[in-house]
Amino acid sequence: MAHILVVDDSSTMREIVASFLSKNGFEVAVATDGRDGLHQLQKDPGIKLVVSDVNMPNMDGLTMAEKIRTELGNKQVRIVMLTTEDNQTMRERGKAIGVTGWIVKPFKGEAVLGPFRKLCGMA
């Protein structure tokens, strides 16, 4: 059972984030795009936090977040966007959908440990 689902189409970024989180005590699952992320979330009800890129093929992160809230009816899982996008309109769309947080890459692991533990109910 994973605590965090990392969703990114970049295998390098998935590995960096997942490896860092695993080394710091989180159970981590990964997905290659939004469609795969939805599938992983349906398979593992223990996921407490989704960390997702925005720009991905097949299904982008914001569309995935919207489907998590609407089609899956999952209001409990926290969703954080980890992206190069620093666009206010995208942030506002994310907030309206129910995105919990927005982190602009590059990924600074140490800075997220406390907040991620809190979001996962580990703090």
Rank of each mutant, 00 (worst) to 15 (best):
K43G: 04
I16K: 06
V6S: 02
A65M: 04
V104T: 10
L5P: 02
A18S: 13
P115A: 09
F107L: 00
D86T: 06
V30T: 15
V104S: 05
P45F: 04
M81T: 13
L5D: 08
T63Q: 15
A123R: 01
V54F: 15
A31E: 03
M64W: 06
V99P: 01
G34M: 01
V80A: 09
A123V: 04
I4A: 00
G114E: 08
P45G: 03
A18K: 04
S52H: 03
G114A: 08
R91H: 09
T84L: 06
M56K: 02
M56A: 03
L82S: 12
M59F: 07
G94E: 11
N24S: 03
F107D: 07
R14P: 14
K67W: 08
V28M: 07
I68R: 10
A96G: 10
I79K: 06
T32R: 11
S22I: 10
T89E: 15
Q76C: 08
I68W: 12
D53W: 10
G114P: 01
G94S: 07
G101L: 03
T70K: 15
S19M: 13
E71Y: 07
V17Y: 13
D9F: 14
Q88A: 13
K118D: 14
M1S: 14
C120Q: 08
S52E: 09
D53F: 07
D8T: 00
G61Y: 06
K75M: 15
V54H: 13
V112M: 15
F107K: 08
M1W: 15
N74W: 02
L41P: 04
Q40E: 13
C120D: 03
